[in-house]
Simulated assay, not measured.
Amino acid sequence: MTRAPILIAILLALVFVAMNAFFTVDERERAMVLQFGQVKAVKNEPGLAFKVPFIQNVVFYDARIQGLDTDKLEVTPLDDRRLIVDAFARWRIADVQQFRRAVGAGGMTAATQRLQAILTANVREALGAVRSEAVLSADRVGLMNRIRDEARQEAKALGIDVIDVRLKRADLPEENLQATFERMKAERVREATDERARGQEAAQRTRAQADRTALEIISEADRDANIVRGEADAERNRILAGAYSADQEFFAFMRSMDAYRKALTAKNTTIVLGPDGDFFNYLNSPRSARAGSGEPPAPPAIEGEVAPDEPAPADAAPAEPAPADAAN
């Protein structure tokens, strides 16, 4: 009966010692075994591990990827246009022992503060070496990669691996937004004016070329028309000259008929001429002239036919129709 309490006490002591001698490492953690402040072992693999009870203790560190958002930074690029920049980083502990020596007992809080100082310095340095257009354009990716590489190199001393760095925002200060907007608007208006001026210049050149081409075409057409017209007039004159030389009397008769047709077409036309005028030479009947001389009257003459007893001499000039003395 007296041994039972002793055995129970021994068993409880063994359980207590076992609980202090063994510990479990989660897959999301890294464990470091310390003995009087000195690192004795590092457990990176998950599972059950052993330590000396009451002498050694275990410190756990989060092995997952951590996030860090920097404070708003005001940077000044090469063109002196101030920018408000927000950045964030993704990092994790790469070397637990180095991390312990670098941050000491401060742990994750101290590591975050020192990493933020590194990121701030690298962001200012990278953005201060370029113009503001590079921060607001596709070159921004290259700048972020440069900041990440430089921060990763400096963070190795802390046992930290910087996975990625990104710029969330790069804006102008509020007091500069309106002035920048007006300047950008003026630049766009100037570019639009230049484009319109170049378009008007091109349009004027095109119109001038079109007018010149049209003038050349019309001139060539008028020249060809005048040539054809001259050739036609020459041919007409040749035909008329041939007809005139072949029968002068007939030519005079045809011209008189044409004059009659043009002068006597209007219904209200009145012509006052003497009966013996040259205009009606071919309309006068030969009977009236023969009656006064006592000769027998000649048969009625066909219009345009010359009386047989008054032949027209071959070399006589054709009688020109006289113009009307009065009209209307």
Rank of each mutant, 00 (worst) to 15 (best):
N281W: 00
P308E: 03
K156W: 03
R152E: 01
P286W: 01
N122S: 09
A197D: 15
E27L: 08
L167S: 06
G304Q: 03
D258Y: 07
D149E: 11
L215C: 03
E235I: 13
G199Q: 11
L283K: 05
A317R: 14
A221G: 07
R169C: 00
V52M: 08
Y244M: 09
E305R: 13
G242H: 10
N268C: 03
Q248W: 12
E249Q: 13
P296D: 14
V103N: 00
E320Y: 09
D69M: 08
K40W: 10
N237K: 15
R255A: 04
D79C: 02
Q66G: 03
A221M: 07
A252I: 04
P323V: 00
M1T: 12
V17F: 11
Q116M: 09
T70C: 07
V165Q: 01
L11Y: 13
Y282E: 04
Q113A: 01
E231K: 15
R166N: 13
A307T: 07
P321K: 05
R166K: 15
A4I: 15
F88P: 00
P173W: 05
N57P: 00
L119D: 01
D164G: 05
D79H: 00
A89Q: 01
R114C: 03
F279I: 11
F250V: 10
N122G: 06
N237V: 12
D258H: 10
I93K: 11
M144Q: 08
D315E: 09
F280M: 04
L68T: 01
M19T: 14
A301D: 03
E310F: 06
P323R: 05
D139T: 02
D149C: 05
E220S: 15
G142K: 02
D79G: 03
L177A: 14
F60W: 07
D139P: 02
F280A: 02
F36V: 02
Q209C: 00
R190N: 13
L48R: 12
T180H: 15
G292A: 13
E231G: 11
E220G: 13
E133F: 09
V135N: 09
D233S: 11
P5F: 08
V17K: 07
A221Q: 06
A18Q: 09
T265K: 14
K168R: 15
I227A: 14
R183K: 14
Y260F: 00
V162S: 02
D247S: 08
P308L: 04
S293H: 09
G294Q: 06
D309W: 14
A298T: 09
A94L: 02
Q97C: 01
L34V: 05
Q178K: 08
L158E: 02
A327L: 09
Y244W: 10
F54L: 11
R3N: 10
Y244V: 00
I239L: 15
D211M: 14
E74K: 10
A151I: 01
I55P: 00
V33W: 02
P5H: 09
V52T: 07
N44T: 12
P275Q: 06
R198I: 06
M144S: 03
M144P: 03
G230D: 10
R212Q: 13
E27M: 09
R223T: 06
A129V: 05
A110R: 07
R198Y: 07
A21F: 08
R236G: 02
V165G: 00
A21T: 15
L11P: 09
V306H: 04
D211H: 12
Q153L: 04
V272H: 10
T112H: 13
A192Q: 11
A197S: 13
R223I: 06
V25D: 02
I65G: 03
